[in-house]
Design a binder for these strands. Structure first.
Length: 295
DNA sequence: ATGGGATCCTGTGAGC
DNA sequence: TGCTCACAGGATCCCA
């Protein structure tokens, strides 16, 4: 599932393909995939037709494409969406179905070769948000999100953890607290920090909180460098898969031996998410009722 | 304040 | 082979 590392890697691969290109045409196949912030305007206006791409921004699992006149398109991939650039030659190698939006791009140096940006989403949990400016997108949408998981400092992180009595698993998944972590990287970070997912967030000591903070940073950076995790759908801006899955220590490894101690990894639902952890290596902090917390 | 369930949605794989 | 059905889970809403 696309989480912070996938979105950041996508942003980095899309940026050189998009910046400097002009959006010559745009087709929106499904109107309900686009949400307009502010006053209603024509689709070609909100799809940024006529604009030249200036920059790509990211916050948590969201990213945006900004053109020079200020217009912005926010993109959320949900669970299965993809955003990639193809050329006439490479387009056939990518799936043709569920393409909800397509932008035709032109470049001053390329007379005939026309690239296209494709947004496809089989399950349609993702979506596009049109805004008049990056500030408007941030004010009306991204302000609901907490501090970006890659940017959060250890002092603020500790304060956030202390502010809630939920389980660590539930707290770290909460995008309004810290933005960017999903099921994969919460499980991987908790394993790296040797903390049990049912630990009570507010019960962590300063040392444990710092350890978790460092673990999150390390896991995210390593995952970004590997191009993210492709379970099935995720592709980067070139249409390539991420290579981080073989490096997963716990996610998707339930009932398999722990890579550190050899104990069989536990697998159960916590906070409505399949969770995998090592009961030997991961310390449980605070008191929780496991019978009510594990569903 | 917090957890739990339902909802949106489609592709996949297990089981019959 | 073909069918049904559970499952995957990001975000959001509602209820207990």
């Amino acid at each position: 599932m696309p989480e912070l590392p996938e979105i950041e890697h996508l942003r980095r691969t899309l940026e050189p393909l998009l910046v400097g290109r002009r959006i010559a045409q745009a087709t929106l196949h499904r109107q309900d995939m686009l949400c307009q912030l502010g006053p209603h305007c024509a689709t070609r206006q909100s799809m940024m037709v006529g604009g030249t791409v200036k920059a790509l921004h990211r916050h948590g699992k969201n990213f945006s494409i900004e053109v020079h006149d200020g217009r912005v398109l926010g993109v959320h991939l949900g669970m299965t969406a993809q955003c990639f650039v193809t050329t006439a030659q490479s387009d056939d190698r990518q799936p043709k179905n569920h393409r909800h939006a397509v932008w035709i791009l032109s470049h001053p140096q390329e007379k005939t070769l026309r690239a296209r940006l494709v947004f496809r989403d089989p399950r349609r949990f993702g979506g596009l948000v049109a805004a008049a400016s990056q500030t408007e997108l941030e004010t009306l949408r991204w302000s609901r999100l907490g501090t970006d998981a890659l940017a959060v400092r250890s002092v603020e992180f500790r304060q956030l953890l202390r502010s809630t009595h939920r389980s660590l698993k539930s707290a770290l998944l909460d995008q309004s607290m810290i933005a960017g972590l999903g099921n994969i990287y919460v499980d991987e970070s908790l394993f790296a920090a040797r903390l049990h997912p049912l630990s009570i967030s507010s019960a962590l000591t300063a040392a444990q909180s710092n350890r978790l903070h460092r673990a999150i940073q390390k896991v995210l950076v390593r995952a970004i460098d590997a191009g993210g995790s492709t379970l099935r759908d995720y592709r980067d801006g070139n249409g390539d898969r991420g290579a981080f899955v073989p490096k997963h220590q716990v996610y998707g490894r339930g009932r398999l031996p722990c890579s550190v101690c050899g104990e069989q990894l536990e697998r159960s639902a916590i906070a409505q998410r399949t969770s995998v952890w090592c009961s030997q290596c991961q310390q449980r902090v605070g008191i929780t009722d496991a019978r009510s917390a594990i569903g």
